[in-house]
Write a protein that binds this DNA or RNA. Structure first.
Lengths: 199, 199
DNA sequence: TGATTTTTAGAGTTTTCGCTCTAAAATTTA
DNA sequence: TAAATTTTAGAGCGAAAACTCTAAAAATCA
């Protein structure tokens, strides 16, 4: 049993706050003082628990890659109507693109790589994140095939990758404040791809 | 007529070098000393011409938005076989994604917004860049319609936006070192979309 | 109670960075 | 030649940042 005063703060909450800050402003623009102010931790607590600023970044990123977009994945995997779930996922892009600065937007933080001592870190996280969504899409599409919603001979992994690529593209477009019609066209293209594979 | 010793260095070359540095490492991670070393300019020359670091960034970004991907746009607009030109554009993604860290990769720098005094700057550039490619794609597709390669009733702007969204997505995927099969699937989806509209 | 550990507050250290200043040499036009 | 301007070199300044250190209070368990 551990002795001594127990840790008071919620690590996950601290990491989520930190991830949001890094994602919004970039690694270099977030100072340790900023982190302390927004998380409520005293500086010593932060250094005691995370070692240094790069440690906070590393753990925040790791958690982000492990948990981001969990609601969407859960929605895909738990739905009784797999095809409708995938369609809902595609339609969700439009909402996300509007508020993309704050919500589930991977590349923003993956690009703002700070910590030059571990240049591969963000990519590893990006792959983890992508892998999770990709897998969920793929299994959901296969369920749609099994339930007779999609043609048995359709290439579910090709469809999943196409949708995921479009999703990344929409995130970029939304982030840059580009015309909404571009997003509409991309969403329509995603839905079209599903229609093509319909049984 | 201007008097005095003329400027020796090539501004465009300096800006291209600076843009590459900002794109690779991000605004904050590039110091003025770095800029001087890699461009060959003495510090005073840099401050004399550009005012400050943000000025270098601003002008480099502006030039990037104005000239990036010029070769691809020229290839689209000058081709005698518009459909083949668009197909070549799509196939080019694969090459770009492999070397995406250095070449024509917009979002990397658009995300590494430094200069908090002008937070909209990168977005303006991103829109300019996107607008140019988008327009070139659209006009080339309409030429394909005019020449009877694509069906007269096809929605060229929808196709252009879909291809552009896929292109952004491929850039993200390539940048993160994700599986090559994802890129292959995205390229195939782009070519498929063109096949659908074939006359 | 005593040992252990976390918590907080704040001052201090070292480094880096953006930028300025000084000052002189080089290259142009009038 | 004279005026104007760019060029280079290097020292230095003020601010901010990451991180450390001191020191003491609080909360747990044996």
């Amino acid at each position: 049993m551990p002795r001594g005063r127990p840790q008071k703060f919620d690590e996950e909450q601290v990491l989520d706050t930190a991830a949001a800050m890094f994602r919004r402003d970039g690694y270099d623009a977030v100072s340790v003082a900023d982190l302390c102010r927004e998380t409520g931790l005293a500086m010593q607590s932060l250094y005691h628990r995370f070692g240094d600023k790069a440690g906070v970044y590393r753990e925040a990123l790791e958690r982000f890659g492990r948990t981001a977009n969990d609601p969407q994945i859960a929605a895909l995997e738990s739905s009784d109507d797999p095809l409708a779930a995938v369609e809902a996922f595609v339609r969700l892009w439009k909402r996300h693109a509007g508020a993309s600065r704050d919500d589930g937007c991977l590349f923003t933080q993956a690009m703002s790589r700070g910590d030059r001592s571990d240049p591969e870190g963000p990519d590893v996280i990006a792959r983890a994140f992508t892998g999770r969504v990709r897998k969920a899409l793929n299994t959901t599409l296969r369920r749609a095939v099994a339930e007779g919603q999609l043609r048995p001979d359709c290439d579910t992994s090709a469809i999943a990758d196409t949708l995921l690529t479009l999703a990344f593209g929409v995130a970029v477009i939304g982030r840059g404040g580009m015309p909404a019609s571009m997003i509409d066209h991309a969403v329509a293209a995603g839905l079209d791809r599903l229609q093509q594979a319909r049984a």
